[in-house]
């Protein structure tokens, strides 16, 4: 988990001239970065199981139960909202 970030740190100490769009970059702060819970992979079910042996998708703490929960939303959206290609095995390797 990264240390506390500020917009100033994202802008950094480098050259002051940057593309306009990067001026709007916002740090991913620890407060809105979620950690993935401890799981083990079940080869038979081909799913991640919690320590209790429950498929993570049905575990009460995940964002996929029926209860509306803001933290669950954040988990669902951010666990893997990262640099891995969302769409493509055809994209250049550098894009993944």
């Amino acid at each position: 988990m990264s240390t506390a970030l500020t917009p100033a740190r994202v802008e950094g100490d480098g050259p002051h001239q940057r593309p306009f769009g990067l001026r709007t970059a916002r740090p991913i702060t620890p407060e809105n970065t979620m950690s993935v819970p401890q799981t083990t992979y079940c080869p038979e079910q081909q799913l991640a199981l919690t320590d209790d042996g429950v498929p993570l998708v049905t575990a009460a703490a995940t964002g996929t139960t029926y209860a509306t929960d803001a933290g669950a939303t954040r988990r669902d959206m951010q666990w893997f909202d990262d640099a891995v290609s969302d769409s493509d095995v055809d994209a250049p390797e550098e894009e993944e």
Binding site: L5, R9, V10, E11, G12, L22, T24, A25, R26, I28
Partner: peptide, 9 residues
Amino acid sequence: FNGEKAAVW
């Protein structure tokens, strides 16, 4: 950016 994760939304 500069070694830190950031989002441009």
